[in-house]
Amino acid sequence: MKKIDKRIKDMYEVFHNHLIIFYSSISLLFFFFVFLIYFRAHWGYLGTTEDHTKSLSPKDVIKYPLSEKFADSIKDSAEILSQNANLIIGIVTAFGIVFTLLFQLIESKKQNFRTNFFEYLKIHRENIQQIETRGKRGHDAFIDILNELNYVYTNFPSNTNSYQAYRLEWSYLFVFFGLGRTSTPIVREYIQKKYPSFNNEVDQVINYLTDLKSKYTDHNFSSKINVLGYTFSVRERNSEHNLKCILDGHQSDLGHYYRHLYQTITYIDEFPTLYFFERYSYAKNIRAQFSNHSIALFIINAYSPLGNIWINGKLIEKYHLIKNLPVSLLIPFGKDVRKDFPNIEFEM
């Protein structure tokens, strides 16, 4: 499939600009039509094997003069062509006008697509820069969110059935929605709806993670110790993850970011006048905006029920959106993308 698509791409690049395909085809059809008329005029002479054989016989050269018959056939063909010349020219001109108008219409649509696409790309870049968490923005924010996810995933309560079945999915949902007065009921309802067989342990997991969150409510990582009846605040720092205020939720940033990303890719995928290699080329422009950590978080989002439309719709495999993903980033989360996406040739 890749070889066929590459050949189509090469042909398209060679012939597209000057309409050589169209005019070459018209020329071939025109000459075919001319020769068709010519042979029809000669059919009685050239189509009769016996007469043709006699005309080539040395004994009957005078009786069957080839040159005279050939001259007569040429004369007849010339008369037929002269009578139909205007018709032929009119047909070729009409086809040329129709094809040119269709080509201009297609090019106009493609130009509108390019204008809209680069506007989508601009908004996509702005969305990346607007993502902020714990004082970090843009691609640095993705690193921070992935570290938070790794911490929640690592500390997920192991005494639950969901630990083995949906550990990563639930961890991502808690990081995405967060835990708090308004967000906890949302994430609880969402999990109970998506995973009805685990309703009994949802509150157990929420209570555990709420206690985990309380350890990071102080921005200065301060903890209190008692010495000889006096209370002192000691400043601490999580050297492994450098986290503050975990499980506050990132749905306002990530939700908008992923919705717009999906809209952009589907806009490319569903545009009718693009060849596949053109769609793939535009998708590569989007893929080039990913950093290592943002693409890792993207595929984790696709594994979750929030973004599984990326996998179910075959968009990831179709455009190799995670081709540049460092595979090692997902190993701590128990995911092997090489097995899940065998058709993608990962670069790292």
Rank of each mutant, 00 (worst) to 15 (best):
M1G: 15
K3P: 00
R7F: 14
D10L: 15
Y12E: 15
V14Q: 01
F15Y: 15
F15Q: 02
L19V: 00
I21L: 14
S24H: 13
F32K: 03
F32Y: 01
V34L: 09
L36N: 00
Y38R: 10
R40M: 14
T48E: 09
E50W: 13
K54A: 10
S55N: 10
I62W: 06
Y64C: 06
Y64E: 08
P65R: 02
P65G: 07
E68R: 09
E68H: 08
A71F: 02
E79H: 04
I80M: 04
S82D: 06
G90C: 10
T93P: 07
T93D: 05
G96T: 15
G96N: 02
G96E: 01
L102P: 04
S108H: 13
K109D: 09
F113H: 02
F117D: 01
E119I: 03
L121I: 10
Q130W: 07
E132Q: 11
E132K: 12
T133M: 03
K136H: 08
I143N: 03
D144I: 01
D144S: 10
L146R: 12
N147L: 12
N150K: 05
T154M: 03
N161C: 06
R167F: 06
Y172A: 03
L179C: 07
R181Q: 13
T182C: 10
E189T: 07
K193C: 02
Y195K: 08
S197Y: 04
E201A: 00
E201D: 00
V202D: 05
I206H: 02
Y208W: 01
F221I: 08
S222W: 10
I225F: 06
L228W: 04
E236L: 12
H241G: 06
H241P: 05
N242A: 07
L247D: 09
G249N: 04
S252N: 14
S252L: 09
H256Y: 07
Y257H: 12
Y258L: 04
H260Q: 12
Y262W: 12
Q263W: 09
T266N: 14
T273D: 03
F276R: 02
R279W: 04
S281T: 11
A283W: 01
R287M: 09
R287V: 01
A288G: 00
A288H: 12
F290A: 14
S291D: 14
N292A: 14
N292C: 07
H293D: 14
I295Y: 02
A296E: 12
S304R: 14
P305V: 01
L315P: 13
Y319W: 00
I322H: 06
K323D: 08
P326G: 04
P332D: 04
F333C: 15
P342F: 03
F346A: 10
M348I: 11
